[in-house]
């Protein structure tokens, strides 16, 4: 579904990610893992069109989208729940959700809203509340729900668990599993390696803008060198 071919991207003269190649298949959860500054967010923001691709190609469903305007990517089926949530804070939950659906015909609004509120019932209770007044967990739910309103074929989620309580993290990951069952392809950026390995089918480990390991999540869990060097997990 998504294919990055030797992609380098960055800001101005600075190249953050170099020669990254990866392929994500339909229906899988793919996790990008790495420390702060590894280039995870830059990679996904280049897929969403916010960061300039300096060389290489990004293909989505076979089409070259490397230089496609941001506004057209959502129409192809790419939606993002970015780092820091970036909600429209002055607007209500309902208005944020309706913005998620902006690229679709009007009649999809109520149908999609019903679907995402079923996934995140907490948002239903806060539907007329201003986004800025929600808790961190509710804001993360809203960021994901807003992206889902666009009926994405590829959902990109950046730092899903960052700054959230364990209970809320559980809730968000349960939603991720439900979405996978529904056939949504998910590209997940996560510093919480344990949680990422639990849900991901495959992972890519980034370090200083280069991929140092790619393979199945199961394979990563069984590779002591990888665990020791990059994943920071406790080995039993």
């Amino acid at each position: 579904m998504l294919h990055l071919e030797k992609v380098s991207c960055g800001y101005g003269n600075l190249t953050v990610v170099e020669n990254l190649s990866l392929q994500i298949s339909k229906g899988e959860i793919f996790a990008l893992i790495g420390a702060n500054g590894a280039g995870k967010s830059s990679t996904i923001m280049s897929i969403a069109g916010h960061v300039k691709v300096k060389s290489g190609k990004i293909r989505f469903k076979g089409d070259d989208i490397t230089n496609l305007p941001i506004t057209k990517r959502v129409r192809l089926g790419i939606a993002i729940a970015p780092e820091g949530r970036r909600l429209f804070t002055d607007m209500t939950v309902n208005e944020n959700l309706s913005m998620g659906c902006y690229s679709l015909p009007k009649n999809r609004l109520s149908l999609n809203r019903d679907k995402v509120l079923k996934l995140f019932p907490r948002l239903d209770e806060r539907i007329e509340q201003q986004a800025a007044t929600l808790s961190g967990g509710e804001q993360q739910m809203l960021a994901i729900a807003r992206a889902l309103m666009a009926e994405p074929e590829l959902l990109i989620i950046d730092e899903l668990s960052l700054g959230l309580m364990p209970k809320v993290i559980d809730l968000c990951y349960r939603a991720i599993s439900t979405l996978k069952e529904q056939g949504v392809t998910i590209l997940l950026v996560e510093q919480n390696t344990t949680r990422a390995l639990e849900v991901a089918d495959r992972i890519c480990v980034l370090e200083s803008g280069r991929d140092v390991w790619q393979g199945t999540a199961k394979g990563a869990g069984n590779d002591p060198d990888l665990i020791k060097a990059y994943l920071g997990l406790d080995q039993e």
Binding site: P82, M91, Y102, A150
Partner: peptide
């Protein structure tokens, strides 16, 4: 509503298809 969203965060509103 798209206008208000653009005032808050032009980049994100573009991500949802706002010109």
């Amino acid at each position: 509503i798209a206008w208000r969203a653009t005032v808050t965060d032009p980049g994100m509103s573009q991500s949802f298809g706002v010109d």
